[in-house]
Design a protein around this nucleic acid. Structure first.
Length: 580
DNA sequence: GTAGGGTTAG
C-alpha cells in the first residue's frame, strides 16, 4: 500500500511542476505493474496531471474510460479544459455532470465553473452560479468568492466584484488583485490605486494586473503614465510580463514616446510572448510586412512560435493579400511546428482566401475543416461574396444557411440583407430586417472616446449631446459634410433601421459618435497630430466612408480602434482595405 | 495520512 501512496505523491509532484514526461512514465509504470487495479483514487490524479501538463486529450481519454466518476474527476476535467482555454466545453461538461451522473456541484466545481464564465464574460450564467453557490452549503468558501470577484471584474461589474470581495473572510493576494484589475479595467483609476495602496500583500502580479487592466479597458494612456510613475518610484516591474502588456497597449494607441517597437527593442530577453505581441500588434495595424519580417527575426533568434504567433501571421498576410504566403505559414505551423490549428486559425484562413476573392478555396476550407464553422467564419466568406460580382449564388446559399443556424451579429445581417437584395429576394430581405430590429433593441449604446493624450472625451451618438463645444463641433461637421458631398459622398442609409424618411435617416448618421469624436479631436488636438478614437462597437459602413474622406480633406491621420480591429485612415484610404 | 478550485501577458 505504501508503494501506491508513494506513486500518488510522485504523480502530484508532476502535476505541480508540470513534468509531463515523468508523469507519462509514471502512468506507464502504474499500468505495467498492475497498480491501476489497486491504486486508490486511480485515475483522478492522472487526469489532473495530464490536464495541468497540457495533455488534454490524455486527460479526456482517461476520464471517458472511467466507470464511476466522482466530483474530483469532474473538477479535474473542468480544470483541464479551462487550462486548455476551452471554457465553453467546461460549461457543456457541467450540464453532463448534472444530467448523466446526477451530481451536485461542490466548492471546487463552483470555482472552476465561475472561472469558465469569467473567461467567456458569460455574465448571466455566472450570476446564476453565484446565486446557486450562495444557497449551497459551500457558501462560506473563500476561494469560490475569489473566483466570483474575478468573474465580476472581467464582466466589467466592479461594484458587484467589490461586494463579494468584502464578504471574503481571509482576503489574500489573489482576491485583492482580482478587484484591482476590475477597477482598472473599467477606468476607475482612483479606486484601483487606493485599493492597491491598502493592499497588505501586493506583489509584482498586482502591479501587472493594474497596468493590464488599464490596457484591456482601452485606457492605454493611463497605463503608460502609471508605468512611468512606478518606474520613477523604483518599483521593479521591468519584467517581460509587464512589457508584453505595454507592447499591446502601445500598439493599441500607435503612440510615439514609448512605442511598441521601442519597448520591444529595449527588451533584454525576448520570449515567445513578447515576439508574438509585437507581431500581432503590427498585424492589427495593417503593417503586415513588418510583422512578417519580425517573424523572420524571431525564428533566426531561435524563438519557437506558438499558436498565437500563427494567428497573428495569417491575419497579417490576410490584410495585404499575401494568399500564398499565408497558406505556407498555415502549413508550416502544422508540418514544421507540430501545432494543431484551432477554429480561429481556420477562420483566419477563410478570411485570407475571402479577402483575396478566392471564394471557392474559402468555402472549401469551411466545409472540410475539423470544426463546425461559427458565425464569424461564415461572415468572412459572405463578405467576399457580397463584394464580388457573380458570386451571388454562393452568397445566397450561405445566407440561407446562416438563417437556419441563427445569427447574433447585426453586421452579419447587413451582409445577408445586401446579398438578398441583389438577388431580388425581398421576402428574405424583410426576414433579415426583422431579425435586426430585434437585435437593435438589445444593442449596447455606442460611444467613441477621443484620446488627446492628457485628456479623454467620450461621445455618445445622437443630437442630444450636451457638450460645451457642441456648436463648434456641429459647424465643423457641417462644413466637412458639404465638402464631402462635393467629392461625391452620398450617405449610405441602408444600415439605419428605423422606419423613417431618407432625410431623417441621414440625420441619424450625421450624429454617429465617431464623427462627433473626430470633430472634437480636430478642434482640440495639436496641428498635424493623428486623431485617435476608441469605439466600443464596430464602425458602420457609412462612417467608414466618411472617415476616409475626412482624413484626406483635413490632411490628418485618423486611427480608430473599434470592437474588432484598427482602422488607420490616411490619404483617403483605410488600412483595413475596406474589409472588416 | 490519500485525488480536484480562484489573480497578471500574446
Amino acid at each position: 500500500m505504501n508503494a501506491s501512496f508513494q506513486i500518488l505523491e510522485r504523480i502530484k509532484q508532476c502535476s505541480k511542476l508540470r513534468l509531463s514526461i515523468q508523469g507519462k512514465s509514471l502512468h506507464a509504470f502504474v499500468i505495467k505493474t498492475g497498480l491501476d487495479q489497486h491504486l486508490p483514487l486511480y485515475p483522478n490524479a492522472l487526469i489532473d496531471m495530464y490536464g495541468k501538463c497540457g495533455h488534454l486529450k490524455h486527460a479526456v481519454k482517461l476520464f471517458d474510460e472511467m466507470p464511476d466518476r466522482d466530483l474530483v474527476s469532474w473538477a479535474s476535467i473542468f480544470t483541464a479544459h479551462n487550462q486548455a482555454n476551452f471554457p465553453r466545453q467546461t460549461l457543456f461538461l457541467f450540464s453532463r455532470m448534472l444530467s448523466r451522473d446526477g451530481l451536485q456541484p461542490d466548492h471546487f466545481i463552483f470555482a472552476s465553473l465561475v472561472k469558465a464564465c469569467a473567461c467567456l464574460s458569460a455574465s448571466k450564467l455566472g450570476q446564476q452560479l453565484h446565486a446557486q453557490f450562495v444557497l449551497s452549503r459551500f457558501s462560506d468558501d473563500d476561494v469560490v468568492k475569489s473566483s466570483l470577484v474575478d468573474f465580476y471584474a472581467k464582466c466589467g461589474l466592479p461594484d458587484q466584484a467589490s461586494k463579494v470581495f468584502h464578504s471574503i473572510v481571509s482576503k489574500n493576494v489573489v482576491s485583492w488583485t482580482s478587484l484591482v484589475y476590475g477597477y482598472a479595467r473599467i477606468g476607475r483609476k482612483n479606486e484601483a490605486l487606493e485599493l492597491l495602496h491598502d493592499m497588505p500583500c501586493k506583489n509584482v502580479q498586482s502591479w501587472t494586473a493594474l497596468i493590464s487592466g488599464f490596457v484591456q479597458g482601452g485606457h492605454c494612456t493611463e497605463s503608460f503614465r502609471l508605468f512611468n510613475q512606478l518606474r520613477s518610484e523604483g518599483i521593479d516591474i521591468e519584467e517581460p510580463f509587464v512589457l508584453s502588456i505595454l507592447i499591446v497597449g502601445s500598439s493599441s494607441l500607435a503612440i510615439d514616446v514609448l512605442s511598441a517597437e521601442k519597448i520591444f527593442g529595449s527588451l533584454r530577453e525576448r520570449d515567445v510572448v513578447s515576439w508574438t505581441s509585437i507581431i500581432v500588434g503590427m498585424a492589427q495595424h495593417g503593417r503586415a510586412n513588418e510583422a512578417l519580417s519580425l517573424y523572420d527575426d524571431m525564428t533566426k533568434a531561435g524563438s519557437r512560435p506558438n499558436e498565437v504567433t500563427f494567428t497573428g501571421l495569417i491575419y497579417a498576410c490576410s490584410h495585404v493579400g499575401l494568399v500564398e504566403k499565408g497558406r505556407q505559414i498555415f502549413e508550416s505551423m502544422i508540418a514544421d511546428y507540430g501545432l494543431s490549428p484551432s477554429l480561429q486559425h481556420y477562420t483566419c484562413l477563410v478570411d485570407l482566401y475571402s479577402r483575396a476573392r478566392h471564394i471557392e478555396e474559402a468555402e472549401n476550407v469551411l466545409n472540410t475543416m475539423p470544426f463546425k464553422p461559427d458565425e464569424a467564419a461564415w461572415a468572412a466568406l459572405l463578405s467576399a461574396c457580397s463584394s464580388q460580382a457573380g458570386k451571388n449564388e454562393t452568397g445566397v446559399r450561405i445566407a440561407n444557411h446562416l438563417l437556419q443556424l441563427g445569427v447574433e451579429d447585426p453586421s452579419t445581417c447587413v451582409l445577408m440583407s445586401k446579398i438578398y437584395a441583389s438577388a431580388t429576394m425581398w421576402e428574405s430581405v424583410s426576414t433579415v430586417r426583422r431579425l435586426m430590429t430585434g437585435m437593435e433593441s438589445k444593442k449596447k449604446p455606442g460611444y467613441s472616446c477621443v484620446d488627446l493624450g492628457k485628456e479623454n472625451e467620450v461621445f455618445y451618438a445622437g443630437e442630444t449631446t450636451r457638450h460645451l463645444m457642441k456648436d463648434e463641433i456641429v459647424d465643423l461637421l457641417k462644413e466637412l459634410d458639404s465638402e464631402m458631398r462635393k467629392r461625391g459622398y452620398k450617405p449610405d442609409t441602408s444600415l439605419v433601421l428605423h422606419d423613417m424618411g431618407e432625410e431623417e435617416k441621414e440625420r441619424q448618421l450625421f450624429w454617429h459618435s465617431e464623427r462627433l469624436a473626430v470633430a472634437y479631436g480636430l478642434l482640440k488636438s495639436a496641428r498635424g497630430a493623428p486623431i485617435r478614437i476608441i469605439k466600443n462597437l464596430r464602425v458602420c459602413g457609412d462612417c467608414h466612408t466618411v472617415l476616409k474622406l475626412v482624413c484626406s480633406i483635413v490632411g490628418r491621420e485618423i486611427v480608430v480602434r473599434d470592437a474588432n480591429r484598427f482602422h488607420h485612415f490616411k490619404d483617403g484610404a483605410c488600412s483595413c482595405r475596406d474589409f472588416w
